[in-house]
Design a protein around this nucleic acid. Sequence first.
RNA 1: GGAGGAGGCUGGGUGAUCGCGGGCCUGGCAUCCGUGAAAACGGGUACGACAAGGCCUGAGGAAAGUCCGAACACCAUAGGGCUGGACGCUGGGUAACGCCCAGUGGGGGCGACCCCGAGGAUAGUGCCACAGAAAUGUAAACCGCCGCUUUGGUCGCUUUCCGGUCUUUCGGGACGGGAAGGUGAUUGAUGGUGCAAGGGUGCAACGGUGAGGUAAGAGCUCACCAGCGGCAGGGUGACCUGCCGGCUAGGUAAACCCCGUCCGGUGCAAGGCCAAAUAGGAGGGAAGCAGGGCAAUCGUCUGUGCGAACAGGCGGGAGUUCUGCACCGGCGGCCCGUCGGUCCCUCGGGUUGGCCGCUGGAGGUGUCUGGCAACAGACACCCAAGACAGAUGGUCACCGCUUUCAGGCAACUGAAAGAACAGAAUUCGGCUUACAGGUCGCCUCUUCUG
RNA 2: GGCCCCAUCGUCUAGCGGCCUAGGACGCCGCCCUCUCACGGCGGUAACGGGGAUUCGAAUUCCCCUGGGGCUA
Length: 132
Amino acid sequence: MEKLCKKVEIDTVFRSRKAVSTPALTLHFSRNSVSRNRVVIMAGKKVGTSVVRNRARRVIWEFLRSSEPLLRQGMDMVWVVRPELGGKSNSEIRSLEESLLKEAGIWAAPKEHPGEFFLDFPSPHGGARGGT
RNA sequence: GGAGGAGGCUGGGUGAUCGCGGGCCUGGCAUCCGUGAAAACGGGUACGACAAGGCCUGAGGAAAGUCCGAACACCAUAGGGCUGGACGCUGGGUAACGCCCAGUGGGGGCGACCCCGAGGAUAGUGCCACAGAAAUGUAAACCGCCGCUUUGGUCGCUUUCCGGUCUUUCGGGACGGGAAGGUGAUUGAUGGUGCAAGGGUGCAACGGUGAGGUAAGAGCUCACCAGCGGCAGGGUGACCUGCCGGCUAGGUAAACCCCGUCCGGUGCAAGGCCAAAUAGGAGGGAAGCAGGGCAAUCGUCUGUGCGAACAGGCGGGAGUUCUGCACCGGCGGCCCGUCGGUCCCUCGGGUUGGCCGCUGGAGGUGUCUGGCAACAGACACCCAAGACAGAUGGUCACCGCUUUCAGGCAACUGAAAGAACAGAAUUCGGCUUACAGGUCGCCUCUUCUG
RNA sequence: GGCCCCAUCGUCUAGCGGCCUAGGACGCCGCCCUCUCACGGCGGUAACGGGGAUUCGAAUUCCCCUGGGGCUA
């Protein structure tokens, strides 16, 4: 699992229009061309002070890291933190993440149909992407 | 014991485990990076790059707000004037400051102690609403106070005259009344004068209190206080103390302003280097004048020559160069000055990579010396984050703290919950703001006991 | 990260330190006009971001917070 840094790649994830959300947390995701997962966690100024924002990033990142063996690989994820997350405890944040991952199909569920899920993935720019 | 005052320190700890940033070491290595499906191509390097392991190290007192001051970098080695801005008791500290220390003055508190943007209102200008007679002018007189002029009322005393009652020694006497006049007290009206003490208005009314003085009053006179000026003494100074003088000067400068001191601008996204990529595009402005030098070349004259031509003189001269002015641009808004220049500005187009700056510094800690202190000096020891979507966290256990509940007379035991403000971004010195607690001595007032 | 600016009724805005108990427009509410609606007329509702300081007096001047916005490779 590595970090997703470039603005162009992050914009690609947003353009895929695949997202699940709760009032406190939103997960945008798309499939990538690398075989590893790439993650970025965004916490804007409206979430709170730098202490609140950095704590949210660490907690989210730490849960993803510790539960990586259970996740499907080859995904780009953009986590967007919303102001409601400020008052949540660490265990609450973890359960929120788990439910979002399950909803997005990234969490390795008991019944696995990976091929079916990725079939309806929209290829951006009318299939102009090479290499897939 | 209670109530306070001022200041310093600290900002949970230990262990296990999984992770993150930086550095070093070890072993392995023709490897590493980019493009590519691969082959391959391009590039970097054996003081190298990558991955693994080990070790070391890794947020704050405010890292914050960005309110001041600097260092550093570029713009000229940061220049002059105007404008503008900041500061403002005194002395010291400091690289510097709007900060700190010590003092002065004022205000608050019984006190320890705390607070103060605290230069100039006699340099000038402005403003002081409403109310009030009057809001700064040696002004003004509403209610008032005083004597005086004119004119009344009441009362007292007195002179003259006229009656009355009683009495008589018939000379008168006593009592009371009326009229006219004089005089005094008091009171009213009127007029002009004197006064500013009192009332009233207001944030503020031209010193305050007391005594003398006066028709009533007034610094009119005196004492004390406050304020002003001068002199003397003390202090580096702010200022303090004493004496003398003339007796009066309102407030506001966080209103303009005056005085003194200081200030060029921009800010590490400063700035420098490397690599890569794109374009030579569009719009606008300016490419002017004068003089001098050189000069392709042209015209003309003279000379030589049969001639082509050559040489010399004169005149013009594309171009080029120099000087001055102008223009444009850089150096805060303007002027000067200065530097650069045929280009300058705006838009459009490309890149969104790497390295340096980047952490050893006005640095900390300790001791000694100087100083009331801030601080300075000497010596010794120490090196303590440097990221670039941005590193300190998760889980578990135990201990310590606080609260609640249960048990217990109590010491205590058990369970649950909680633990502030807050995260480095070029670096320092301050200020300001936020902050759960814990802890250390010092000081003041008060109560009780001995 | 650095450097700046702004804050007045629900909205857009006026507002020399005293006439501010803060004005106007659009809203909103009520009444009148009309057969009814619109237009029009009359009246009302409603604000100086918070705290401190200067001043006799502050929306206005000064300081500190709070909340918005902009510029900068």
